[in-house]
Design a protein around this nucleic acid. Structure first.
Lengths: 359, 359
DNA sequence: CGCAGTAATTGAATCGTTTTATTCGAGCTC
DNA sequence: GAGCTCGAATAAAACGATTCAATTACTGCG
């Protein structure tokens, strides 16, 4: 009883196997009576379609590949969640590939998924893989780039506007009346960092008396943030900024520790603080962090939409570059909630660590 | 040029298609000369095997299904990383399914993956799905349970010994000379919580003068930890515990905030603190947290190993229950590093948030 | 020189489904 | 009642790789 196939079902139902296929795929072409008989036979035998045969005949599969830089990174985890969710709605399975920033692994995953004849690939590329992606396209396997500024507009892509995010953050700080703004982030060769800085500096345009100081960071880590925070504390009060925009939440959390817990400054009273990414911990920090949130899961969902759209109409489809605008989640670190208090900030939102279950 | 198949390759190489297949799968049966010609033809045409046809013939696929409760949970992310990594080494693709704790979604994923004829499934089950898993087994699709205590030993499983973890944590605290231990955690109907408590209480056996107080928590969150921390601060000094074992790191971080930052107590001087899970943030807390680490990625790798072993020998395979022992990572919150300082603790380790890249 | 034995290659059958052209009837019209 | 159409069901031909029994080519040996 290892393998139940359409033939067995047909035999039990007393019809031809073509009819079984029709019952499965175009029920309206089959008379109600036989449809019922076929259904019963299927249930009785516990028949499950063999997708391999199906896709062999159809020439296309019902799965899509997702290759990410690092599945451990919460951003990509969210992207994957969104993509899987959307794909599942459409009856597609998602093949997960973790390139770990390794071009060799990335290429190998591309090959592996091509053998599986995936319907298309979602890729957040490590290396320059245009040649490979173009080759895939000649095989009618479309690709959608995730979170990469892309020069080649012949591919669809989804990304978030980091410049807008930077502007959002600093405009908020200016709106609170702060004028001595500091940007903490680096290395600037990371596009996201330089874009966020660019956005920050744009926000200053036309605001008189406002200054933007750039404090370079070696890495986007908590420790680095703490170090910089302590350096700020060491300054004369008049030389300190009255607001900081950190390039990501890890830095922001470190800054918070350095400034407030170790340095004795008050956040947001003395210095207001905005982070970036809205990681789960942002809401749970001692002073809940105001942060710029990226619609990560939506990125994943949208990428799948673009992929399927292109797959349905390989010829006529026009590649699209979808750029999402991030959103500011205001919490206590800029005075959004209770002063320096305990209550959760305004945002809240779905992914908060607060609601997370135990491992 | 949409589809290049073995026949095309055979034609170009001037051999029969059987030979091409041999060249692909059993190169030693083919003369070096023809092997070379076939290789060249493959390269020239850019031939890529069609896995659908392959698996149709073979009756088995080269992919495995992974169904997790919540891919957003760092524990499962690590499990997934380990599983994907191991599977990839073996040339297998991983189909990712996120059940989101929803039994309906879980069942649907099971069906979807069964249609894909996966080689086997890794499942961290939401509901009681034994009937479905047993049905799968009659189809030679083995399943391995992930992180579930399992009564039915006819399935392989991988899990972590939470009792041992609890003992580990509290033994460490006792070793530091602490005697008034508090366990913070709940709800106890979660098996992991009750097991950790059980382990904690076992550690006390035979240690005279040691007491274990249980402080129930409504949820395993930062906020709840903070609340409990403040409650402890409100006690008379003599009534306070001198060490706390928290059921997970979120609680521990909250406790740290409540005790130390808001309450003025010193960690570890006044109260030593141990968490559980060793989440990325544990090392980055103001006082780096001592924590119990679970070998999550190893769980994933091992699960894949068990799955493939069973798949290779469906008849003779004996299901195994692999239970991992967690490991204690000592950091400053129990005096492991600098007193209450800034330096990272002992553990460090691969997954630290410290090294994490920007989104 | 012929024969056995091995190595290399071939061709046909097969996996399970979908699809397409075809057949079979029944019900209608004129 | 002959000719039609239309609905329902069928049989056969794909899809692309693998495998196995059969064939050919070749080597060495007696």
């Amino acid at each position: 009883m290892a393998a139940v196939n359409v033939r067995d079902v047909a035999a039990l139902a007393g019809v031809s196997l073509g009819t079984v296929s029709n019952a499965l795929n175009r029920p309206e072409r089959v008379s109600p009576a036989t449809l019922l008989r076929v259904q019963q036979a299927i249930d009785r035998l516990g028949f499950v379609r063999n997708d391999a045969a199906r896709q062999l005949r159809a020439g296309r599969s019902r799965s899509i590949g997702l290759i990410v830089l690092d599945i451990g990174n919460p951003f990509f985890t969210d992207v994957a969640t969104g993509a899987e969710d959307r794909a599942f709605e459409e009856g597609f399975a998602v093949l997960l590939g973790n390139s770990q920033g390794n071009p060799t692994r990335e290429a190998a995953h591309l090959d592996l998924f091509e053998e599986q004849r995936v319907r298309g690939m979602l890729v957040s590329p490590v290396a320059e893989i245009w040649p490979q992606l173009k080759r895939l396209r000649t095989r009618e396997i479309p690709a959608v780039l995730v979170d990469r500024a892309i020069s080649d507009t012949s591919f669809s892509s989804v990304s978030v506007d980091d410049i807008a995010g930077g502007t959002l953050a600093v405009t908020h700080l200016l709106g609170l009346g702060r004028r001595r703004i500091a940007f903490v982030g680096g290395p600037t060769k990371i596009r996201q960092v330089s874009d966020r800085l660019e956005g920050a500096s744009r926000a200053l345009d036309g605001v008189n008396g406002a200054t933007l100081e750039v404090l370079g960071a070696q890495a986007l880590t908590v420790l680095e943030g703490r170090r910089i925070g302590e350096a700020i504390v060491a300054r004369r009060p008049a030389d300190r900024p009255d607001a900081i925009f950190a390039a990501n939440d890890l830095l922001a959390v470190g800054l918070l520790q350095g400034l407030s817990m170790l340095g004795g400054l008050r956040v947001p009273d003395d210095i207001a603080l905005v982070g970036y990414d809205d990681i789960a911990f942002a809401a749970a920090a001692v002073v809940p962090l105001t942060s710029v949130r990226q619609p990560s899961a939506l990125l994943g969902r949208t990428a799948v939409d673009l992929l399927l759209a292109e797959s349905h109409d390989p010829g006529g489809f026009e590649p699209q570059q979808v750029v999402f605008t991030p959103e500011l989640v205001v919490r206590a670190s800029t005075g959004g909630g209770a002063g320096a208090g305990v209550s959760a900030g305004a945002g809240g939102g779905a992914g908060d660590l607060a609601g997370q279950e135990l491992t």
